[in-house]
Amino acid sequence: MLAGRPAVEAAEQAAHMEPVKGRSLWQDARTRFFHNKAAVASMVILVLVGLFAAFGQFVTPWSNEEIDWALLGSIPEQGGPSWENRHYFGVDETGRDLYARVVQGTRISLMVGIVGALISVVVGTAWGAIAGYVGGRVDTIMMRIVDLMMSIPYMFVLILLLVVFERSIFMLFIGIGLISWLDMARIARGQTLSIKNKEFVEAAIATGVSTPRIIARHIVPNLLGVVIVYATLLVPQMIIFESFISFLGLGVQEPSTSWGALINMGADNMRNQTPWMLGFPLAFFVVTLFAFFFIGDGLRDALDPKDR
């Protein structure tokens, strides 16, 4: 504690000192996160998967649509992974390079996951924070909308959308965007209700800070920990969701593909002695999902407010 004369003098001297840098809660969390080995390893894996999706195509002479006519008749015998013909992961049932297809499928699947998570972070957080903070009738109406949308069997609606309109990545994103933010809105609202009663919010209101500013400066930053954890866990959920749709044959359109579509194709060919067709996409799928779960777990521990 500082008090009395000496402290005041010290303060006068210190007035000319350089400001000390503080340790924000985010920095604390980062330190804790980097002490979590599983989370850090998962982070490395995710970066590698990301690099694979971004630059993997440069390593192979094959594109994802080109058919290797030389192999077409003898895929089970000669279509497996091989260095000689540069099919690192082998070819798929129609003789296309599986490596190139996995690169392209990874792009789509990651994009679906990340877009879904981003929509949920932006829309869900804003929706929940506003409903929770403003309260009253606004809250009731906003949350009823969420309840209503949740009660719709979205899978059915999405399938309908994909059947009625042209099946496209864009439609898929719209479908995912429509549902991904609902849970987030509820989580954000719950958190907001507890933050709203904290004294620092009352202090801001008493000072005359405007409502949008209170939401932006006081509510949302304190909400973000939970939101980030949930968003990391939402990415794999979205990937699984897309895979399921693709598994039904309603997802991405040929020649584009995704992990779900590739796994589907691989599973169909299990009888033909071509295990690589299932193995490679499945390995990417599983490893990435686990990585996201471990990271989400690590973030939850790191951001846990009880540890403060």
Partner: peptide
């Protein structure tokens, strides 16, 4: 900050 007995170079702390 000086007036209330806090070192002003602590402005960036949390």
């Amino acid at each position: 900050m000086e007036r209330v007995g806090l070192l002003p170079n602590l402005v960036n702390r949390y």
